[in-house]
Nucleic acid binder design. Sequence first.
DNA 1: CAATGTTACGATACACGTAATCATA
DNA 2: TATGATTACGTGTATCGTAACATTG
Lengths: 92, 92
Amino acid sequence: MEMHQVRYFLAVCETLNFTRAAERCHVTQPALTRAIQKLEEEVGGQLFRRERNATHLTHLGQMVKPHLEQVLADSQAAMSTARAPSQCSGLR
Amino acid sequence: MEMHQVRYFLAVCETLNFTRAAERCHVTQPALTRAIQKLEEEVGGQLFRRERNATHLTHLGQMVKPHLEQVLADSQAAMSTARAPSQCSGLR
DNA sequence: CAATGTTACGATACACGTAATCATA
DNA sequence: TATGATTACGTGTATCGTAACATTG
């Protein structure tokens, strides 16, 4: 599992639309589709159910989603902690 | 930030030794060194202080570490949730 | 000189974008 | 036929491993 897969997954969760998720992530649909497919392989099942009108989360997707939200939140926390001015003085 | 950088970082945290961390991650030292360097660039500072005998975490590294432990834990939780037998029946 | 970390370099793999294809309303 | 997702294909970047180098006890 890689971070970009997590970002793409969460973007699809929010938009329920691969096209708009791709736009939001600044990539093309094919790139996003493949990343999601690869994530689904790793996870061992479908995360989304693609249907005529809309895209839904599967049960598996619903189970995984909160964990991946945490992954993203924690990685962002790590970055903002690091960039916080509080530690400009003591990097060692 | 990518997941493999997180794994490598935590391996160095635990071993305080690039060589053994690389072994644990099944990569060569050069690969691990470069991954850590790149992470340090992204974070904006040194994460480890390399010294004659040993390797220590810098203050920055100490601040970042718990967040990256969370990232790893959450990603593993996502995977084990997905693979748990509980949802063999209802993947949709 | 033994152990540890870094740099150089060529090769491989992976993610990307464009374009073509499929499916559906 | 228009919209949205996938597949095909060639390209570029980034990571990798091997090997050479640097540093230090």
